[in-house]
Design a protein around this nucleic acid. Structure first.
Lengths: 205, 205
DNA sequence: GCGTCCATGTAAACGGTTACATGATTGC
DNA sequence: GCAATCATGTAACCGTTTACATGGACGC
């Protein structure tokens, strides 16, 4: 149950459910996501286990909030999770499943559009991550080589996101080139279309 | 619902639930996984929707099996899924969450062991994918440049797995080097030993 | 006064995992 | 005869998503 432990990790500094959601979106989005509707009940469960405790507190803006903070038991639980072996969940990529079967359509131009869509998506995520890195770098003159050990770990996790996304984009480029070389109109514009014999091979009806 | 559509895609050739499980493990494992206990009820549901139909058939080895095959409606559904936009599910990586908070432990040697564990895991998966690629290449003299368009798509999906895993391993190497440079014993065994840079550079197993 | 953000939740459904159960056939 | 593999399922649970619901505080 990673969400539990991520919340414990984040709660080294007291925070409300709403705060935690913001932390997820700002700092953690590249390897985990959580909705408020999941965060709130989870916090209650963690409090039931005595891993966190809460108190009411004023907000700077808006109504009062419920501030959660870690207990010693919670800290012990966090450490035990961190000390354990790496947890791999099996990765599922719907878009690869689509690509895998896309030969069915018998339309390379469609594949090309699909791949360009992927590339756009990945470059956008990459840009977001890079700007996150830049913000961090600007705020801390020690970034990245002289960061304290603790922040080094955060940096490594971020690097994983960057390298992964760069690889995603490279793969898109490689794939687009490969498909474009075969596509009748080299994947450009909708004009200059040559009739191929493979036109018969389509599956739809 | 990707599993539904993956099953439709695989059922271009008639197959039983058990057959489909083997296909998942053999050809699809790098972007999707499914258990038999999920496959069987899903097949029933798909049959309820008239996207597939089944008949009983003899097996080469073992008891009789229930062979499923695609209906025209199922084929239409498959095509509509393939024609739609790429489906991104948000990716979650527990091991990155662990790394992110691992500064808590204040023990770089532990981080180092963790990263080496990751590297081992990824190289093993990479080796498996490479052997899958090799098997494919050996079986088809057209591989990879003169593959028919349909198989090209399968190849592209496989390439994504390869490039991704290579990036994962590179990231591990980079991270290990960075942490080892700070760790009290250079991250080598119990005796302190100097790290040569050539130690990191092997990616190929 | 109205919209936006702050803040906290509940309920139903969904997709997937784990554990359990059963039995046929084949090869040794 | 026994183990391994082939084959098909059910039940309980878990983590997550989607939709719904409510209301306070602040800025314009």
């Amino acid at each position: 149950m990673s969400l539990d432990h991520i919340l414990l990790g984040l709660l080294r500094e007291p925070a409300s459910g709403y705060d935690l959601k913001r932390l997820f979106d700002e700092r953690i989005a590249h390897f985990w996501a959580a909705e408020l509707s999941q965060i709130y009940p989870t916090l209650k469960r963690l409090e039931g286990r005595r891993w966190i405790r809460s108190r009411s507190a004023a907000s700077m803006r808006g109504p009062r909030k419920r501030l959660y903070h870690l207990t010693p038991e919670g800290r012990r639980e966090l450490v035990s999770w961190l000390s354990g072996p790496p947890r791999y969940g099996d990765e599922r990529f719907s878009y690869l499943a689509q690509l895998f079967f896309m030969g069915e359509l018998g339309d390379l131009n469609r594949t090309l559009r699909f791949l360009r869509g992927l590339r756009e998506h990945f470059t956008a995520k990459l840009a977001a991550l890079r700007s996150l890195e830049r913000m961090w770098g600007d705020a801390d003159p020690r970034y990245p080589d002289r960061l304290p050990d603790e922040d080094l770990h955060v940096h490594l996790a971020l690097r994983k996101g960057l390298l992964s996304l760069e690889a995603h984009v490279s793969w898109c480029d490689e794939s687009i080139a490969r498909v474009a070389a075969r596509a009748p109109d080299h994947g450009r514009g909708r004009r200059s279309r040559v009739v191929r014999k493979s036109d018969n091979r389509r599956l739809h009806e």
